[in-house]
Design a protein around this nucleic acid. Structure first.
Lengths: 134, 134
DNA sequence: CGGTATCCTGGGAGATACTG
DNA sequence: CAGTATCTCCCAGGATACCG
């Protein structure tokens, strides 16, 4: 059967791609999405389309360059779309595609984990740093 | 310890930390774990303790420096432990802590997503690049 | 408003050599 | 085997200025 039965399972068997291999395209994709700004941009689009300025304001400290660059890359990879409203001044909205929507919750869980377990990580760092026998 | 009622829900309410804020410690933590090598190292430890050389072999293309650096950081953050067996030659095993074990599946899902959706991303890129009106 | 274009610098990261 | 130490280079990414 040529249909993908495995797709119904949460855990897919080894596909044609393997990120452990340095030459595999998936390795480069892992590199792209395992990115600080991606981890902030995707969850920021969870509640529907957002204007460029909204994203810039929400994601504190991001430079225009990095925000634009990140959005362009995500657009090229098919994770979000860019809608330009030719008003004056111009208005640009970004929205997750179905593909982006499939990745977003996974990324959001990482961000959420960081926020939830920050205290434990801090404690571990203090513990590590205070051990003189290291 | 204070009782965490919100912990039972999959979606926690805004905690004390907010990665959207550039000054928040969670922002820095997001930066640390949204990392190419972390995304490969954590899933590599999913099946129990692994030797340094096993990790190096499995994660194709990683340099000694980056592997060691990544492992040290993860150890300091309390995500894994380092066990030294003083044999000759020395043997070092790395193992996920409960904290690391709580993050690992989330990271593994990102890696898995990259492998599963590589074709769609490739198609999107071709589509984007072939659009001359861009 | 939502971008480019350009310059510039820190440090991320590979290569290499050495060691307990 | 599992690292550390050093050197070096490259480019990610911030700052700044300008534009449709």
């Amino acid at each position: 059967m040529p249909t993908r039965d495995a797709a119904q399972l949460g855990q897919n068997p080894a596909p044609t791609y393997d990120a452990y291999l340095s030459t595999c395209p998936a390795r480069q994709l892992v590199d792209r999405i395992s990115d600080k700004w991606v981890t902030l941009v995707l969850p920021a689009l969870a509640d529907g389309p957002q204007r460029y300025s909204d994203l810039a304001r929400r994601i504190d400290g991001v430079s225009q360059k990095m925000l634009t660059q990140t959005l362009r890359t995500l657009e090229r990879d098919g994770l979000l779309t860019r809608h330009v409203t030719p008003s004056v001044p111009v208005r640009v909205d970004y929205e997750l595609t179905p593909l982006g929507l499939s990745l977003m919750p996974l990324i959001a869980s990482i961000k959420s984990w960081a926020e939830t377990h920050m205290d434990e990580v801090s404690a571990a760092r203090d513990d590590y740093d205070s051990d003189s026998s290291r």
